[in-house]
Design a protein around this nucleic acid. Structure first.
Lengths: 152, 152
DNA sequence: TTGATTTCAATCGTATACAATTAAATTGCG
DNA sequence: CGCAATTTAATTGTATACGATTGAAATCAA
């Protein structure tokens, strides 16, 4: 008996970086929710739109590589964006395996309304732009190390 | 025309802290997956077990408050842990609204196997304990500011 | 060039997440 | 006390996530 509690410290929830990241992702989601509701988007749908606003007419694969999502997640999500008339899905003629995702005019137009979102998030985080950028870089570096272990 | 691209920078995926957090949570998940498979747990199930290993016999509400999860998520998750014979769910006699969650001997025993997990994660993150703790504190501070905005 | 391999999206099954509703139990107020 | 308001889990419906499989298309190799 009288075993020291030290051995249990690594198992303490509050000591785990992963839980901090996991719960922060949820906290972000709650902040984004009312903003994205106005755009009629969920957060993953918003991420797909961000990718498309940067570059249009890309195959599903590329979106997946960018967001670390596979076709099992993206196919139904993209069908919902198509049903909302924000994107068009067309089989590539050069490579019939690929489905190319393009913005509709409505999807293009949504970009203007979306500009308000990052500003609101910045305000909610109560940080300077510089602090946010620094934290982002740290987290991305961590993410990349983790991904390297799993093998990309 | 000739509008500067500066206005688009906040909409760039790679500039967004939230995406960094979101994708890091996924990266963690991928690292945890093979470790937790050995325990027969998913990551959210592992989080519930961490809570119970700290304190046993708590109502569903308390677990939800700790993990920021509601009964819609926890009820089916806890039923699966009960089916796996890791926990027992019993209505409280003092307050029949509450369901108390207690570890079974099997659930208690799993704790020993779980000790290997945090070590493996530490190795995968390729950081010192001090760096991880510092990053965790920063992220938790951010999370708490975000939660304050939403109102808890 | 054919045949095996690989690639890509879709599909299926399981497991979170969360909003909204429900039902039962408890609390609190007049 | 007595009833309204609140609390707690469970339920329902929608939307991710991801592993595994499938089928079609493209590539590679012999």
């Amino acid at each position: 008996m009288a075993r020291k509690h030290a051995a249990d410290l690594p198992l303490k929830l509050d000591n785990q970086l992963c839980f901090a990241v996991y719960s922060t992702a949820h906290a972000f989601n709650r902040v984004y929710k009312p903003l994205l509701d106005r755009l009629g988007l969920t957060y993953p749908q918003y991420l797909v739109m961000l990718v498309l606003w940067e570059r249009d007419g890309v195959p599903v694969k590329d979106i997946g590589a960018r967001l670390h999502l596979d076709s099992g997640t993206l196919t139904p999500l993209l069908k919902r964006l198509e049903a909302a008339e924000l994107i068009k899905r067309t089989r590539s003629t050069e490579d019939e395996r690929q489905v190319l995702i393009a913005l509709t005019p409505k999807g293009e137009a949504l970009r203007e309304k979306a500009r308000a979102v990052p500003q609101a998030i910045l305000a909610a985080s109560a940080c300077s732009v510089g602090e946010l950028a620094a934290m982002k870089n740290e987290i991305v570096a961590l993410r990349d190390r983790l991904n390297a272990v799993v093998g990309e």
